[in-house]
């Protein structure tokens, strides 16, 4: 296996009850790259993202076929603890969802509960907030409730919270769709910065965003992966006509 591949999907089918949400997905995600998943609503891109840290386990009546390898190990194998996977695969959600706790405790929550080495929690909190480019804005109000922050700040806090777990991969499910343009720009800059150390897989509705920040882009339609290639290629000269139609806004 190619050494810079971190996640490998092999013939993945996924069902909500009787209806199939993903059909025969086979694809690889590469280390330290930003991969974007695009496609119209209901195409299965968010479902796929949530498969990668086994968040779909939380939904009743779902079923998966096929294999997903994370660093050569099938994360859907019987002996795998999903909790273990989620520690290595962090997630940022569509709407900022800080806990109703202080800023400090939002960051410290995960490390404290997962028996990470927490000797120097203060440093970890500072580090994570700095990585998420939030430190300067909140360093004096660490003991204030996170609910008082603006939407953009909350989202960066959520990113910092995920980073505090020192994951290998960061999954982002439309992380800027609930934010204003200025906050969006900040998050995009941040993603640019983070890909030096992390593998980022991002679902986005916003085609320009995918074009701006990602290295590779996969286009999904009705549960199928239509095309997956270098972002530049997808946006300038896609192989499939369908992809071109979507990107140029002819449907979607």
């Amino acid at each position: 296996m190619d050494s810079d591949i971190i996640i490998k999907l092999n013939k993945v089918n996924f069902y909500y009850g009787q209806s199939r949400a993903l059909t025969d997905i086979t694809m690889n995600f590469r280390k330290n790259k930003v991969s974007a998943l695009i496609g119209p609503s209901g195409c299965g891109k968010s479902t796929l993202l949530r498969l990668l840290n086994r968040m779909n386990d939380l939904i009743d009546g779902t079923r998966i076929e096929g294999e997903i390898f994370f660093e050569e190990k099938n994360i859907y194998a019987k002996d795998v603890d999903p909790v273990e996977i989620r520690r290595k695969v962090g997630m940022v959600f569509q709407k900022p969802n800080p806990f109703p706790k202080t800023i400090y405790n939002n960051i410290a929550y995960g490390p404290k509960l997962t028996s990470m080495n927490t000797d120097d929690l203060d440093t970890l909190v500072e580090q994570s907030l700095k990585q998420a480019v939030l430190w300067d804005e909140v360093k004096d109000i660490l003991n204030k409730s996170a609910m008082n922050l603006s939407g953009g700040q909350q989202q960066r806090l959520c990113i910092a919270r995920a980073l505090a777990m020192k994951p290998d991969i960061l999954l982002m499910d439309e992380p800027t769709s609930a934010l204003d343009p200025i906050s969006t720009a900040k998050i995009e800059e941040l993603i640019e910065e983070l890909k030096k150390n992390y593998t980022i897989i991002i679902v986005t509705h916003n085609m320009q965003q995918a074009a701006r920040i990602s290295d590779e882009t996969a286009f999904f339609y009705l549960g199928n992966m239509v095309e997956y290639n270098k972002t530049e290629k997808i946006f300038t000269n896609p192989d499939v006509k369908h992809t071109e139609e979507y990107i140029t806004g002819r449907f979607g």
Binding site: M55, R86, F99, L113, R161
Partner: peptide
């Protein structure tokens, strides 16, 4: 909110700890 549970679980915190702490 369900998002609180998801946030906690996505950090690799176990289900019981999520219930108990969040």
């Amino acid at each position: 909110p369900q998002t609180f549970r998801e946030a906690s679980l996505s950090l690799g915190v176990s289900k019981w700890q999520t219930i108990y702490r969040i």
